[in-house]
Amino acid sequence: MLKRKTKSDLVFDIINYLFLGCFTLMILYPLYFIVIASISDPNKIYSGDVWLLPQSITFDGYKRIFSDSSIWNGYKNSILYAVLNGIVSTTLVIMAAYPLSRKDFYGRNVIMTFFIITMFFNGGIIPTYLVVKDLHLMNSMWAVILPGAMDAFLIIIAKTFFEELPEELREAAAIDGARNLRYLWSVVLPLSKPIIAVLVLFAVVRQWNGFFDALIYLSDGEKFPLQLVLRNILIQSQPSGNMLMDIDNMLAKQRVTELIKFGVIIVSAVPLLALYPFLQRYFVKGVMVGSVKG
């Protein structure tokens, strides 16, 4: 259709390919490096020999990771929190968004305003912390799940989706004698799979990647989610003792710690990597709706 190529367009295309090529490489290379480094000899990483291909392949790092219980415990906790957060968050959002999407719902503007105000002003870290304390949720997994479970933005996204369902559908259902809840359960929800997917994925990713609520609310190491365990290893360079138990040489310890770092990044990324096709499809949808209406 648009085939004519002028000189200036050719220059443009060359610049464009260079620009996007460099940018893509800049994104991709660090990720690729982590993969090859995680199976390379740590001494070769130290000397700078690893940059294009793995060197002296070893699975020592993974063996140490798999033999350590703190990581698996964190994994288990994170999965539990993510699943619970997915359920709680999605349920709450739908309970708020569906009534608000109905034009015959008297008082919808008042309630919507009640939700929206919180987008512009919030109590902040400390007052929220004190509320969690007052509710006796300290050191409970609900402290990690509930305070961030939903916000007004999610309600807007879901409400917009529900508003697009045809009004005739409800009229037809009403003739068949389906009352509000029945209609919501057996007509609306089955039609709302895309928005449910968006809400669940938002909640799961937020929970899987979050660490701050866990940091301030949890004190018992047994309850730590994966991200807190990762923080000890990656940022404070303190893998749990039994990962390095057999090494007494300081230098070797340091090097194996580096190797373990690469391995845990991969291990922690697996669940989201598995979800990536869905994330690609639904995250965009969710953000689009939200940014148009937001």
Binding site: N209, G210, L230, L234, I265
Partner: peptide
């Protein structure tokens, strides 16, 4: 989709 912890870990 990389967590902040992992991102900063990568920087280190």
């Amino acid at each position: 989709f990389i967590s902040t912890v992992v991102l900063v870990g990568m920087l280190f």
